[in-house]
Amino acid sequence: MDDKLREWLRTATEAHCPDRERMLARVERGMAEGPSARTPRAPQGPLRWLRVVGATAAVCGVLTVGAYAVTSTGAGQTRRGQVAASPVTSASAPAAPGRVHELRTEDGPLRVDGAVDPHSNAYWAQSNVTLRTTQPLSSLTVELRIAQTGGVNTTGSWRSLPEQDFTASAQERSGFLVYRWTLKPGRTVPIGTHMFAGQYNHAEGVRGADGDYITASAARTSGQQVSVGDDFTPDH
């Protein structure tokens, strides 16, 4: 209880002069009416005022808490909105998907290297795959993945090995333009260095190839499986 309220109560108590005759009359009247005739009355004077003050304080407390909750929720929504807006802003520049495994350029008799052809320009490019094998291969699958950095679409592909020995395809898949060459059953890849290349248009400007990569899996004529891969980092 603060000092102002204490002062008010003290003043009200000193100013109160009870009417003895009226009080006795009320007591006698109440006894005559009996308990059933009495009706509850709202408390008067300082006690009623205290209850009003308490109720007001409680309401103020609820309003204060409510205002804080609204303010906090509003701020949270603003922060969430800002966070949610970030992907929309960056949606025009797709992130390069991660690789599913570590790439190693050499495995047993097989080696692979990737490089962007020096004749590429601001609108068109060719990515070269150099495959070397020191043993004949009874099966071979080569995949060249070009990240969709904007405007990437195929303009063709080729290989140095006989065309009739391979099944070739080019299709969009999971944010990449994927070139695939698969050796047909009953054919053999001879010992030597062989080339595979994918050609494509792209958005105007210098295109970064650091999201591109290649993989190759093969089987020796003895049946042993090998697999290799490489990316297109600037040092190539």
Rank of each mutant, 00 (worst) to 15 (best):
M1P: 10
D3N: 12
K4E: 09
W8N: 05
A12N: 07
T13K: 05
C17P: 06
R20Q: 08
M23C: 03
L24G: 08
A25C: 08
G34V: 06
P35R: 15
S36H: 15
R38Y: 11
R41K: 03
P43I: 08
G45P: 05
P46G: 08
L47K: 06
R48I: 07
W49C: 04
V53P: 00
G54D: 12
A57K: 11
A58G: 01
V59W: 01
V62R: 06
V62M: 12
T64Y: 03
G66A: 13
A67T: 07
V70P: 01
T73Q: 02
Q77N: 10
G81K: 02
G81R: 03
Q82G: 04
Q82T: 00
V83D: 08
V83K: 03
S86G: 09
P97S: 07
P97N: 03
H101I: 10
H101D: 13
L103R: 04
E106C: 11
D107I: 01
G108R: 13
L110H: 02
V112A: 04
G114K: 04
A115T: 09
A115D: 13
D117N: 15
S120W: 08
A122D: 11
W124E: 11
W124M: 10
S127C: 01
N128S: 06
R132Q: 08
Q135W: 00
L140F: 04
T141N: 09
E143A: 02
E143Q: 14
L144Q: 14
R145W: 07
A147E: 13
G151T: 05
T154M: 02
L161C: 01
F166N: 10
A168G: 01
S169P: 01
S169D: 11
R173G: 01
S174L: 12
L177T: 05
L177E: 12
V178Q: 13
V178M: 09
R180N: 02
K184F: 00
K184R: 13
P185G: 08
G186C: 00
P190L: 10
I191S: 13
I191W: 05
G192S: 06
F196T: 03
F196A: 02
G198H: 07
Q199E: 11
N201S: 04
H202T: 05
A203P: 01
D210E: 12
G211R: 14
D212I: 02
Y213F: 15
I214S: 14
I214T: 10
T215C: 03
S217G: 04
S217Q: 10
A218G: 07
A218F: 13
A218Y: 12
V226W: 04
V226H: 07
V228Y: 01
G229N: 14
D230E: 03
F232N: 12
F232K: 10
P234L: 06
H236E: 12
H236Y: 10
H236P: 00
